[in-house]
Design a protein around this nucleic acid. Structure first.
Length: 565
RNA sequence: UGGGCUGUGGUGCAAUCGGUAGCACGUCUGACUCUGGAUCAGAAGGUUCUAGGUUCGAGUCCUAGCAGCCCAGCCA
């Protein structure tokens, strides 16, 4: 996309920002924030928000804070803070010196609450949670005022002081904003803004026993940090009137809240609750299981930060609740890895091949290009010898139509090596299973080109049996079998759609020796198969590879179409 | 007779604040190729939720419907 095209199609948030810049609403400033609650791991949906907030700041010469919205000590942990920091920075964003915590504003937020009480706009309520719910009314009927709604300011002040001092047990009292119990927006029916929680906080320890609720805290955090555009997801639209009310009543700096649609992806689930459930029930190996849509899972799977950022840019930002086809994510990694990943040959399901006319004991080091897309990535040597492995899929004794690979009597090219022709098929006497192929090679085709100009229909990857190193390969597929995991029979839940084939482990594959020293995280393309990366489970003796994504596979499509007929 | 938001090809997003629907992903052809990859060229696919209305002209404006999503935590 060129600059001028980008200008022509601004998303609705960019439009707001540019208008603000034009009118000087924020003195030309753009200051956003990414405000995660440290109660779980980040996923690709958060990546959309991160790219949006940091991206907007970058685009308009502004800044973006990383702010932990840690107002509920019961759910929050340092482990999550650390993983979130790692993920945001891995994605390529820098919060510089603006690593912030809502908990650092607890005193100020409390003082603001006192101010609200003094203004007669908040009161301490003795109703319990159940009673508050009853008094709240329903979607179609108005609520009723609490009997404690009209306490004197003095009494409220005394009560809130004692709440903070720890005089009352959990749940016995709350501080409520005094707004309107008949409002059609339930969030405005005297929302609770402080609750008593005698819980230890991951940063403030036991300093506090009252904690602010989201609606009270969030706007104040934005205000204190002098955020200009407070970007959040659609479900907070109903909260905006309250966000505005709080800041207006206090008469403080007042950012603009803007809501956008959260990301949904086909074949996966995105809610923290469900991801946690998958982890806890052992459907996946952990938050960083390569099948998870978490940032840590995708990192382990082999996704690059660039591919995720490109994906987020490509899907756009709007207010329509949409579901993105996971093929777009896969497209984004392929596009990036195609340019960056060195090519390697590996055979996943080995079929032994003996080159009958190749001298026993001879080994040749053949030249192979590391990346045809980038000459700068150089070349390497791969050893060739008399006994090789090729992919089982690359041979058919009885080739169907349009099958171009090896079959009896047919000549194909071994990549960077020689033309070979299949002359014999050896089968297991008992099972009839093909155990070995015999071929002859044409010495004149060394390197892969025939001096007489003859062509072959296909090129196969291969490894030398004596030189290849053994490795484990883990193939991943979609976590769920249906585009929409919620598409279930009545009575069962999304988990009944878990894809039983989402992980296939191939314990003994053969990889060309150039990868011996590779470390976890290294990425490559196994030619003709897909993009892979070295998993942390690798040990000195044995490398473990994760398949990030397969290559586009035209033959698989043809085969599938043929089967349908 | 709760309120808020949204509705454009299979999917996602555009359309210079009325000018006659475009891009991407996906799908399907073909070319090229030492990856059936990549690349390149092309095709199919939309009565812009519906019905009225304003206008020379409406995806854009008006009216009335319909559908979907969100809200009754002392979660965020």
């Amino acid at each position: 996309m060129t600059k001028s095209e980008e200008k022509l199609s601004l998303n609705f948030i960019q439009e707001i920002i540019e208008e603000d810049l034009r009118t000087g609403k924020w003195d030309g400033r753009v200051h956003t924030r990414f405000p995660p609650e440290p109660n779980g791991y980040l996923h690709i949906g958060h990546a959309k928000s991160i790219c949006l907030n940091f991206g907007l700041a970058e685009q308009y010469n502004g800044i973006c804070n990383l702010r932990f919205d840690d107002t509920n000590p019961i759910k929050e942990e340092d482990e999550y803070v650390e993983s979130i920091k790692e993920d945001v920075s891995w994605l390529g964003f820098d919060w510089e010196d603006r690593l912030l915590f809502a908990s650092d504003y607890f005193e100020q937020m409390y003082q603001y609450a006192v101010q609200l009480v003094k203004a007669g706009k908040a009161y301490v309520d003795d109703l319990n949670a159940e009673q508050i719910r009853e008094y709240r009314g329903t979607l179609t009927t108005p609520g009723r005022n609490s009997p404690h709604r009209d306490r004197s300011i003095e009494e409220n002040l005394d009560l809130i002081t004692r709440m903070r001092a720890g005089d009352f047990p959990d749940g016995s009292r709350v501080l409520r904003a005094k707004i309107d119990m008949a409002s059609p927006n339930l969030n405005m029916r005297d929302p609770v803004i402080y609750r008593i929680l005698k819980a230890s906080h991951h940063r403030t320890g036991d300093e506090w026993c009252v904690y602010p609720m989201y609606d009270w805290a969030h706007g104040l955090e934005d205000s204190i940090e002098r955020i200009t555009h407070s970007i959040c997801t659609l479900e907070f639209e109903n909260h905006r009137p309250l966000y505005d009310w709080c800041l207006r009543e206090l008469g403080v700096y007042h950012p603009q809240q803007i809501e956008f649609a959260r990301l949904e992806l086909t074949y996966t689930v995105m809610s923290k609750r469900r991801l946690l459930e998958l982890v806890q029930e052992g459907h996946v190996s952990g938050w960083d299981d390569p099948r998870m849509p978490t940032i840590s899972g995708m990192r382990r799977r082999g996704y690059t930060p660039e591919s995720i950022r490109n994906f987020c840019k490509a899907i756009g930002v709007a207010k329509f609740n949409s579901t993105i086809d996971i093929a777009r994510l896969e497209h984004a990694v392929r596009e990036d890895l195609n340019k960056k990943a060195p090519r390697v040959m590996a055979v996943l399901r080995p079929l032994r091949v003996v080159i009958d006319n190749y001298p026993e004991g001879q080994v040749e080091e053949l030249d192979a290009v590391n990346n045809p897309e980038d000459a700068g990535m150089g070349a390497r040597k791969v050893p060739f010898s008399r006994v090789l492995y090729i992919e089982q899929d690359d041979f058919r004794e009885d080739p169907p139509r349009k099958f171009f690979r090896l079959s009896p009597g047919r000549e194909v090219r071994l990549r960077y090596a020689y033309f070979v022709t299949c002359v014999d098929v050896v089968k297991d006497a008992q099972t009839g299973e093909i155990v070995e192929l015999h071929c002859t090679y044409d010495p004149a085709t060394r390197g892969g080109d025939a001096p007489d100009g003859r062509k072959v229909k296909s090129t196969l990857h291969w490894v030398s049996a004596d030189h290849a190193i053994e490795g484990e390969v883990r193939l991943y597929d979609h976590l769920f079998g249906k585009p929409n995991p919620d598409d279930v029979e009545t009575g069962s839940d999304y988990k009944s759609n878990l894809n039983p084939y989402s992980l296939e482990t191939l314990p003994s594959c053969w990889v060309e020796p150039s990868v011996v020293d590779w470390k976890p995280g290294s990425r490559c393309q196994f030619e003709r198969l897909g993009y892979f990366c070295v998993d942390p489970d690798s040990s000195d003796g044995k490398l473990v590879f994760n398949r990030t994504v397969s290559l586009r596979d035209t033959w698989a499509k043809i085969e599938k179409a043929q089967k349908k007929k």
